[in-house]
Amino acid sequence: MSAAQKVSYFGLIRNGIFGENPVFRVALSLCPAVAVTNTLKSGLLMGVAVFFVQVMANISISIVRKLIHARIRLPAYILIIGTWVTVANLLLAAYEWPIYKEIGLYVELIVAFAIILSRAELFASKNEVVPSFFDGLGMGLGFMFALGAISFVRELLGNGALLGYHVVNTHPVLLFALPMGGFFAVGLLMGFFNWIDIRFFGGHGASGAGH
């Protein structure tokens, strides 16, 4: 994103949700996309946590980017991200304890999520605070959208329910509630969004599709 200054703020948000969607287009942070998406609620909460950390980390790193020596930038980024992950972790533990028991481990792992560090390195460290904020907003929303879509499919097919409420009265496809269902859901949705991109927008799909 070298030409980032030319892009509008709205374009940055759209880029995060569609153009470079962290999960479906860039294929980063697939571990939580598989691990914590068996119900819509946990998937969405994980998305909210990542959204929060992404936005705050982007802002903080953008503010202090000129003070960090290039050689120690990665440890410094990790420290900043870790600070915000701690905040998100404690907030979730305080207000959403039942869900936190299930996804708590993965919330702490947000420190090591590739998408957050990659936005810090690729965008926040090179741009002003306001564009960094909108980039974090877009990427966070994109991640939340991806986890929401995956967990929507998985809870609907695997449990016949949405947000814990029974909606389909039949024998559900148990496979989608199991970990392997996460891989199927991610793969099928990724293919679906590639298909939309190629078919309706004349794109080439994510790297690997059609090549």
């Binding site: 496809v173 148990l174 496979l175 989608f176 392997m180």
Partner: peptide, 10 residues
């Protein structure tokens, strides 16, 4: 395998 894992009883 898909059927066995998804509907073990049937």
């Amino acid at each position: 395998a898909f059927l066995l894992i998804s509907w073990p009883r049937a």
